[in-house]
């Protein structure tokens, strides 16, 4: 069983101390590590290893990141909430199969979505299970006495995980937008009324985040005040196997749904630079020579225009359907 190389991690064994359904398709899990527990800041996540079986029956595992909701370190656990996904790549299905007492490998918290406390105003926008990343932030902002609102969007009321306890602690600062009840997020108006130096933190489906990002730009807001994280485990297209041909090496292979293109390249001994493995740094951007099918750019390193031109793709997070021919010999800045 090989663990993908994604970042250096110290793995602990964590035991499931609680597993409880808290909303339609949302399960709360308390994970107790067998080593020291770390305090963590809002926006932190833990990585866990989830096992899966290849088509040929071979056992394998992959890494999933889950946001930590509230600071439960004082209770001796890491608390996460996992949504049940119908066409899961394996993470959701495995996490939902866990019962109290089960164990799984876990890496201690890290934070790529840090909350500032120095802005005059904050707007938090959560879509569905995206609430998990913003839950601790809202509680911390409330504790710090900062001016903020949390807009929680969901399809139906029974999908509003954690809303009740948030309501108790946040009062009117929590607002819900439930599409089945005809209440929708008015992105343009919300951004327009945010303080010019305010920050917007968002977490949710790609379509929601794209929509907010486009509106944020349209209103001429500073890019760095739009805050989001980049697990990049969802894209604009469905996650399917695809074929990669490395022209300069004359090799061709398939990238399965449970592997990133970067992992697959490594497994086929294709040497390639990479660092963040979250689609931010661009070090793994490879040149696309040809593509049969569509490329699903899931990085935030390239601009939309660069993604549209598809002359490069970030191998750590981006995917495709069909076949992509790449060249790994050249690197540098690109148009």
């Amino acid at each position: 069983m090989t663990i993908p190389a994604r970042r250096q991690r110290v793995w602990q064994t964590a035991r499931v101390a609680r597993s409880e359904i808290i909303a339609e398709d949302v399960r709360l899990l308390d994970l107790v590590p067998d080593g020291p527990i770390s305090a963590y800041t809002p926006g932190s996540h833990v990585d866990v290893q989830v096992p899966f079986v290849h088509d040929d029956g071979q056992q394998d595992s992959d890494i999933r990141s889950y946001s930590l909701i509230e600071d439960a370190a004082g209770e001796g656990c890491y608390r996460i909430a996992v949504k049940r996904v119908a066409h899961s790549r394996g993470g959701s299905r495995f996490m939902w199969s866990l019962c109290q007492g089960d164990t799984l490998p876990l890496a201690p918290p890290s934070n790529f979505f840090s909350l500032s406390y120095t802005c005059p105003e904050y707007l938090l926008v959560a879509g569905g299970i995206g609430i998990t990343a913003l839950h601790g932030m809202a509680l911390s902002l409330a504790r710090a006495g900062k001016s903020f609102r949390l807009l929680y969007c969901a399809r139906s009321r029974d999908r509003l995980a954690l809303a009740e306890s948030l309501r108790t602690q946040l009062g009117d600062r929590l607002e819900t937008r439930i599409s089945d009840e005809g209440s929708r997020l008015d992105t343009a108006a919300e951004i327009a009324q945010l303080h010019p130096e305010g920050e917007l933190y968002m977490c949710g489906p790609m379509a929601l985040m794209d929509h907010i990002r486009d509106e944020w730009r349209r209103q001429g807001r500073a890019e760095w005040r739009l805050r989001h994280e980049t697990f990049a485990n969802s894209g604009r297209l469905a996650t399917v196997p695809f074929t990669v041909a490395v022209e300069n090496l004359g090799v061709e292979f398939e990238v399965p749904v449970n592997r990133s293109m970067l992992d697959a390249l490594r497994e086929h001994d294709v040497e390639i630079l990479a660092d963040c493995e979250r689609g931010e740094c661009g070090l793994c951007a490879v040149e696309v020579v040809a593509a049969e099918g569509e490329i699903d750019h899931r990085d935030v390193f390239m601009t939309r225009d660069q993604q549209r031109r598809s002359q490069h793709l970030c191998a750590c997070v981006s995917r495709a359907n069909g076949r992509v021919v790449i060249d790994t010999t050249r690197q540098g800045t690109f148009e």
Binding site: E223, R225, R227, T333
Partner: peptide, 22 residues
Amino acid sequence: GSGRCTFMPSQPTINPSACVRA
């Protein structure tokens, strides 16, 4: 002033996680 990175050389985008503690 809040520690957010606002400029990176040789690229049009900014890594979202880039910040220093304020």
